[in-house]
């Protein structure tokens, strides 16, 4: 990406049009993981693809101003900590680590969005984490390639 800022106009336009729906679809997969096939892992991958599409289309320099790879680390840690905290609350409330304490207290109506207790929350945590991780993986590959091109070998 150093010589030309991003790809051609066609790719940029398509990316601009399609990235927000991809993101919403990722949210949908993540939030309805307890009702339909899906969940945090696929949802997070879809999120990350939305971001990566933008980065690939618009080129590293321009996209990183909006989506700094260092910022992704924050979401990464945040998602993981959220998962762990849900587990710890379960151990405080119900006596067992990762106990589904919301389901025990407030069982929602089955087949509705607000049901299954902690599961949607954990899905959100995993979605955040996986998205941030995948984004950083691709960015790490890109940055590594750039470093290799600048500094020759190694």
């Amino acid at each position: 990406m150093p010589e030309k800022e991003g790809m051609s106009l066609i790719v940029k336009e398509v990316a601009r049009l399609i990235a927000p729906p991809i993101f919403i679809f990722g949210l949908y997969l993540t939030l309805t993981g307890h009702l339909t096939p899906g969940g945090g892992f696929p949802g997070g991958v879809v999120f990350a693809c939305g971001f990566i599409l933008v980065v690939l289309a618009y080129g590293g320099k321009r996209a990183f101003r909006r989506l700094p790879p260092e910022g992704a680390s924050k979401y990464d840690s945040g998602g993981a900590l959220l998962f762990l905290v849900i587990g710890l609350i379960g151990s405080l409330v119900g006596g067992h680590f990762l106990y589904n304490f919301i389901q025990a207290a407030l069982p929602g109506t089955v087949f509705h969005l607000l049901s299954a207790g902690t599961m949607p929350l954990i899905n959100i945590a995993i979605g955040m984490k996986v998205a941030a991780c995948l984004f950083m993986v691709v960015m790490a590959l890109t940055l590594f390639r750039l470093a290799g091109e600048k500094g020759g070998e190694s």
């Binding site: 680390s73 900590l81 762990l84 710890l88 151990s91 067992h96």
Partner: peptide, 24 residues
């Protein structure tokens, strides 16, 4: 012995938290 999981959960939590400590 309801705290055995802490042997895993405590270092995990630390591991998740510490990358944030590299920030300015």
């Amino acid at each position: 012995m309801s705290w055995v999981f802490l042997l895993v959960a405590l270092p995990l939590g630390g591991g998740f938290l510490l990358p944030l400590f590299d920030k300015r």
